[in-house]
Design a protein around this nucleic acid. Structure first.
Lengths: 225, 225
DNA sequence: CGGAAGCTTGATATAAGTCAAGATCCGTGG
DNA sequence: CCACGGATCTTGACTTATATCAAGCTTCCG
């Protein structure tokens, strides 16, 4: 459970017309071609950004976690190019686009944050390109998981193991593999006690080993006894 | 040869302190961590954006062509995250970052164009993720080539076959394949008369077939002949 | 209680990588 | 002008990572 205050969101506090919205699991927040009216700051829940190929295959191009803006680039171009869907029950604060335009007073700070988030999005996209282009399945999967882990930690900072509402099919569509192959890689990660996974839930138990694997592609010597 | 006027660039025309710069083949325009002072609009030549993995492998994450801004996001965050290098002799017009900040008068138009270019960059990044994640080698290579072809056409619009100063190694590092495998795919494309390629130069002869292949992954029936 | 969605595992197929050897072109220095 | 060396390209033989096909299991939800 994420406290709004904990991530600097205070709905209704002197910011006119910022409104709370909720989405249920599998509900879409945007479709390709939609002209958006607002950007959302995620309070709670996970959002996926994806496209579908003619073949029906899905490629996930991004994940929004609590604290993130979805999607920052709507401030510059309000037409959504992809599908945005809630992976789990999601609450957001929606900021009307016009209140975020440069020059609009009263939301300078939020406007700056949105642009900062846009930079992070760009960085993550590059990281995905690098990952998909040049890394093995094990490295790709580890990279995605350690990235999500770090972003979750950053977001709420409490010590509980970060729970991820991801099915093996979701993971497959993030790293460009088959669910079957993802299953085999997860098995390996489980056997090395790096994480636990059941039915649409992944929890990282050994983040440092995961980080090691994401870079080296093999399991380093464990420091723990 | 690209005429500056043809793409709307008029160096020195009422825009204070925009300066022309030149780079020779293989010269770097930016290194990771560099704090940039200006964004460049490419007048002539090709620029590559890439990273290196610990293993020494290279992944190219973007290409800048005449007419493009390099890199638009420096307007928001001036620290370059990657390497930028000239593939061929390159001329640019460099705009100091401060002249592009919102509110600075005298460069509103350029400022808007930079942001529009940032959106295009984001779109291309997503396209790369989709391509690398879910397409075959033939589709990936065709996608990259038809994209570059279209952007070149858009850029200067004259009828000459668009020449691309790309080595097979460069192509490999764009599409996440081995140079050897790129060679075999190019051979196939050559045999189908879709393009010509020799020593660091690719020229598209049948763009529509290339587009077809980039989507379907096989060669459609030729309408010509 | 039934069925869908998700997970697991084995056997086999295929796209792409690796290794190896040469050919060709290109710039540079003698 | 020529010779050399390096970068690029080409092709064949073989290996490997990942996909595909198939079957059965488990959990959850209606």
């Amino acid at each position: 459970m994420i406290e709004a205050k904990a991530i600097g969101v205070e709905p209704g506090e002197g910011v006119p017309s910022a409104a709370e919205r909720t989405y249920h699991r599998r509900q879409h927040l945007a479709f390709p071609g939609d002209r958006m009216q607002e950007v959302h700051r995620v309070i709670e829940g996970w959002l996926l950004r994806y496209v579908r190929l003619p073949s029906g295959q899905r490629q996930i191009t991004g994940v929004y976690l609590p604290g993130d803006f979805c999607e920052p680039q709507w401030v510059i171009d309000p037409v959504s190019p992809e599908w945005i869907v809630a992976l789990s029950p999601t609450r957001t604060v929606a900021y009307p686009l016009e209140t975020l335009l440069p020059g609009h007073n009263g939301n300078q700070e939020t406007s700056r944050e949105v642009l900062a988030d846009l930079m992070r999005l760009l960085g993550r996209q590059s990281a995905m390109v690098i990952s998909l282009g040049r890394k093995s399945g094990l490295e790709r999967l580890s990279s995605v998981l350690i990235d999500l882990y770090d972003r979750l930690e950053m977001g709420h900072g409490n010590g509980q193991p970060a729970f991820m509402p991801l099915t093996q099919g979701d993971l497959a569509d993030m790293v460009g593999l088959t669910p079957i192959h993802v299953n085999r890689i997860l098995k390996e990660l489980r056997e090395h006690k790096v994480l636990e996974a059941n039915r649409g839930a992944v929890a990282v138990s050994d983040p440092e080993m995961l980080r090691f694997v994401s870079v080296h592609g093999y399991f380093g010597t464990s420091r723990a006894g």
